[in-house]
Write a protein that binds this DNA or RNA. Structure first.
Lengths: 216, 216
DNA sequence: ACCTGAACACCGTTCAAGT
DNA sequence: ACCTGAACACCGTTCAAGT
């Protein structure tokens, strides 16, 4: 699968190939395993060559976030579930797509936790979602808060999915009966926790519809 | 304010002093400004001396999270608002304390985004909160999910508070009218966003009370 | 027991030089 | 236009040695 290329001439490095390789690196070793030098080695080039294609490491990570999200959350995917379904289902569909994007790249989740999920490329999807919510009677300001909060719910659940609380609990002996019981029951199912939080949010948003005086 | 000490003898370094200095460093320069070498310089010692007091940098950051949280969220603070108020207000009080903790150390927020907010020291507060919710009719598993989701809401809002979406919007010209309108209205008020999300969650949790068959 | 200095194996990024 | 090598100013951490 090696690409033959003329020595000294350009390596045919596409930005997309850099992102795919970086993502594979992150999937394998996590965010801490991603370095410019390591990525370059993986690509068979010098580290400094990367700076010709991305501004710096920060921009690379931004692009990575955009890339992961774009696999599942697009204006098209929003449009597909839009119009025919309730705003509740449109929002849950958005959350499900987001969930699948993060699920397919668990190593990249940490990147989402520290930078904006609202990437410029995904603003079109945001525009459509806000449109759906405004049609249902929310103000645009409320709609933005709703979509943002929903995204936080999905990211936050994924970001805290890896933590092993069992170890912490060990060191506490016979105390904390309720905590112990709670962690024993249902805890490990990430998708269930995502659904629980998103459903609770959606149920709560409803209140703001009846709370406002008008509907339009 | 220099502490005189016998040369070569121990520097009287308390773990607490290390944490306070580390926190000051993070408050000033953010998480990226925190390094073992820099922290040591700030303390007037060699970097390697730190390893006598904390296992490694990861353990230091865990301790920092615990330290920030402990200033506002304790079993005592939970107990104060517990018993006399509804589970809704107890939960909102917990969220408010959490919010204040993060508000007082914005530079440390990034640490919360990547590690468990459920530190061993704060498990007692968690036990009390779950107790309140169980008394109200939730199962312990539901109660844990509820507290966890509430913590995620507060952390997530703080973690995304710094992002400047305005710059992203510039590059999109005349498009995206709803997004533009939404960001123009209400967006910059972090506390309002936290309250909105926590209130929505609490309103949604209610559904799970009437949804279950029994109350006990 | 507590602290240190040198050393190891890394980082991101700049810059002048190569083809 | 695209790529490189050396260099700069950093990292976290280990380990043998000092008092």
């Amino acid at each position: 699968m090696e690409q033959t290329r003329i020595q000294g001439k350009h390596a045919g490095l596409q930005r997309d190939q850099i992102l795919r390789t970086a993502l594979a690196l992150v999937d394998r070793d996590g965010v801490s395993g991603l370095s410019m030098r390591r990525l370059a080695r993986e690509l068979g080039i010098e580290a400094m060559t990367l700076y010709h294609h991305v501004k710096n490491k920060d921009a690379l990570e931004d692009a990575l976030v955009e890339h992961v999200l774009a696999e599942y959350v697009t204006a098209e995917s929003i449009h597909r579930i839009d119009g025919r379904v309730s705003w509740q289902d449109a929002l849950k569909g958005y959350a499900r797509d987001f969930h699948h994007a993060l699920e397919s790249h668990p190593g990249a989740v940490a990147l989402f936790a520290t930078r904006s999920a609202i990437t410029s490329r995904n603003l079109r999807a945001l525009e459509m979602l806000i449109g759906t919510l405004v049609n249902a009677g929310f103000t645009s300001a409320q709609a933005l808060r709703i979509v943002h909060a929903t995204a936080i719910a999905v990211i936050g659940q994924h970001a805290t999915a890896r933590h092993d609380v069992g170890a912490d609990l060990e060191s506490f002996g016979e105390d904390l009966p309720l905590v112990r019981e709670a962690f024993g029951t249902d805890w490990s199912d990430l998708e269930a926790r995502v659904n629980f939080m998103v459903s609770s949010l959606v149920a709560g948003y409803d209140r703001y519809l009846s709370g406002t005086s008008g509907l339009g």
